[in-house]
Design a binder for these strands. Structure first.
Length: 581
RNA sequence: GCCGGAUUAGCUCAGUGGUAGAGCGGCUCACUCGUAAUGAGCAGGUCGUGGGUUCGACUCCCACUUCCGGCUCCA
């Protein structure tokens, strides 16, 4: 039995080698093609080309065919180490390769891999022969543009993405997973379940929450507030716009202007739509003299911000131009930060558990090499408090050395959804910049004025993105406590419409989210409709139920059971909701 | 913003230089029904927007909007 690491390594080799084969095929089919780079990636591989003509999706099968031909020739992959000069000579017509050679550090081995007629500058490793590449277990998936070396100032190349596996069966499994991802796409479910919409005529990247989506949001917000109060936070509310003074002081007009919208002119003053909430919270802080006895202050706000995002990056609910952050700022003394950070981290993990996300990874980003503001001692203490908190919670984490913002170190949390995809949600950031710029102080026990520590944190991130991830995580089948409609009453025939209405009214009075399907369809069609809407419970109501006052319950998983009464059923639902099921 | 693709009925999509189609959904009627689609009929589109070519444009060309897959960036 193959060990997981061996399997990963083997797949890596297969994918990387398949990328080489693809490059050969492309160069053969499109003479004049220049090749750039072609690595193996998470679930496949890609190769970047400069092509003499635009590529079409219809070209992919042709390339695949040629690849199969190459694989069938059973060519060995041969490694050869060459000198810099020889490498330059060999790739004299490949500008991208020449650039790579130029940038290889002196003394580094320059190796080439060939499979027959195609030679690539490559570190390897590769499979021994194309015989090891399963010709029926790879597939070219898509064409995309990609900047050379990921820099938008560089030439745009054509990237072909593909996937490769050890067997056709694995490939089929993977393709099935892609289909599943497509079915769960929050944009698709958003329409099918009537959760939200966007409107091109009214502006891209702006979300319209429909009643069902807004219902879920209301539940989330309610939960969020309750949790925050329980965790020692207070809630604040602040405006959507502020005068330029505010943004000049905060520095946003200096370092964040490219993400901000043009100002509105009001009474000859410039007002900006807020891209962040922090300056507003700071004004509340500064509205009184603060003592060390007041700290820590934890102020949270569901603050709606607007940020300019380049048109090409907008994506459903996941990347938008107007969104509501579940923001909070913590102002505390140096002695308090360790406990505060640990508190935030625990709070966040607690919330993820409640929403059904068990797998969380942390990313610790430290002081950037240059341009950082704030005293080194503060950076050290802050970073240490972040690290300690992660370690105390025994979280797996990745260190991002120098990856922090110029104003402070941070922890980001990424959660894994039910399909194993990672999403960046929580962020916990120190801010040494704002407290300085706004001259924030508190009176210490010795009477001196000190600078408080300021921590900015968003747990869910933004309600829009969180909702998008939630939809995909559950595939639209929200747990009972979040389901916008918990119960659909289905009369077996129109004669029982009145009874269905009465049952729904009773359920609503008991604080359940219930609806009756009184449409002209037959019962079976209504059941199907409720199933497709992923309603947790259906109540089938006919003569029996009407006379006995009982309920015939069908859950969306297909099981059926009886409830003695509306009250008993409601109690059962409440019980489950309380457990966040 | 950049590269490529797309933009036709509420949704999913077919069509192609000569008067615009299907399925689902909607509406109407009939059926009065017991755990995933009852049947029939009707309505619905200045073919994303603005220009151009043409006797004639949904179809060809240009610009723009929005969307999709990426790149870059990020909650």
């Amino acid at each position: 039995m193959e060990k997981p690491e061996e399997r990963t390594e083997r797949l890596h080799k297969i994918r990387h080698s398949t990328a080489h084969v693809m490059a050969e095929a492309v160069r053969e089919l499109f003479p004049g093609t220049r090749i750039a780079i072609g690595p193996a990636i998470e679930e496949g591989f890609y190769y970047d080309f400069q092509l003499p003509q635009p590529l079409k999706t219809e070209d992919l099968p042709r390339i695949e065919e040629r690849m199969k031909g190459i694989i069938a020739e059973e060519r060995p992959f041969q490694k050869r180490v060459v000198g810099r000069e020889e490498a330059r000579e060999l790739f004299r017509e490949e500008p991208y390769k020449l650039e790579l050679i130029r940038d290889l550090p002196e003394g580094e081995e320059i190796s080439l891999y060939s499979q027959g007629g195609f030679t690539d500058l490559c570190r390897g490793p590769h499979v021994a022969s194309t015989r090891e590449l399963p010709a029926d277990a790879f597939k070219l998936l898509s064409i995309a543009g990609a900047y050379w070396r990921g820099d938008e100032h560089n030439q745009m190349l054509t990237r072909i993405y593909g996937t490769a596996w050890q067997s056709p069966r694995e490939l089929a499994d993977y393709l099935r997973k892609l289909e599943e991802i497509e079915k769960r796409d929050h944009r698709r479910l958003g329409r099918e379940l009537d959760l939200f919409s966007t409107h091109e005529e009214a502006g891209a990247g702006l979300i319209y929450w429909h009643p069902k989506g807004a219902r879920i949001r209301a539940i989330v917000e309610e939960y969020w507030r309750r949790k925050h109060f329980a965790n020692g936070y207070e809630v604040v509310n602040t405006p959507h716009i502020g005068k330029s003074w505010l943004w000049e002081t905060s520095g946003h007009l200096g370092f964040y202007a490219q993400n901000m919208y043009a100002p509105l002119s009001i009474d000859k003053a410039d007002y900006y739509l807020k891209p962040m909430n922090c300056p507003f919270h700071i004004l509340i802080y500064k509205s009184a003299v603060r003592s060390y006895r007041d700290l820590p202050l934890r102020w949270a706000e569901l603050g709606t911000v607007y940020r300019y995002e380049r048109s090409g990056v907008l994506h459903g609910l996941l990347r938008v131009r107007g969104f509501t952050q579940d923001d909070a700022h913590i102002f505390c003394t140096p002695e308090q930060i360790e406990e505060e950070i640990l508190g935030v981290l625990r709070f966040s993990l607690d919330i993820w558990k409640d929403f059904g996300f068990k797998d969380v990874r942390a990313y610790l980003a430290t002081q950037p090499a240059s341009g950082a503001v704030g005293e080194p001692a503060r950076w050290a203490q802050a970073t240490e408090s972040l690290r300690k908190a992660i370690e105390k919670e025994k979280l797996e984490y990745t260190l991002d050395e120098g990856g922090g913002a110029f104003y402070g170190p941070k922890i980001d949390l990424k959660i894994k959804d039910s399909l194993g995809r990672e999403w960046q949600m929580t962020t916990i950031q120190f801010d040494f910049n704002m407290s300085e710029r706004f001259q924030m102080t508190f009176a210490a026990s010795d009477g001196s004025l000190q600078r408080p520590y300021m921590v900015h944190r968003a747990l869910l991130g933004s309600l829009e993105r969180f909702f998008g991830v939630l939809v995909e995580h559950y595939g639209g089948a929200f747990p009972l406590w979040l389901a916008p409609v918990q119960v659909t009453a289905i009369p077996v025939a129109p004669a029982f419409n009145e009874h269905a209405k009465a049952v729904v009214a009773a359920l609503k009075a008991l604080d359940l989210r219930a609806e009756a399907d009184l449409s002209e369809q037959r019962m079976n069609a209504k059941i199907r409709a409720a199933q497709e809407q992923k309603v947790p419970y259906m109540l089938i109501l006919g003569e029996k139920e009407k006379t006995a006052g009982t309920l015939s319950v069908r859950s969306r998983s297909g099981e059926q059971f009886a409830a003695e009464s509306v009250a008993k059923f409601a109690a059962m639902v409440h019980d489950r909701v309380k457990k966040l099921e």
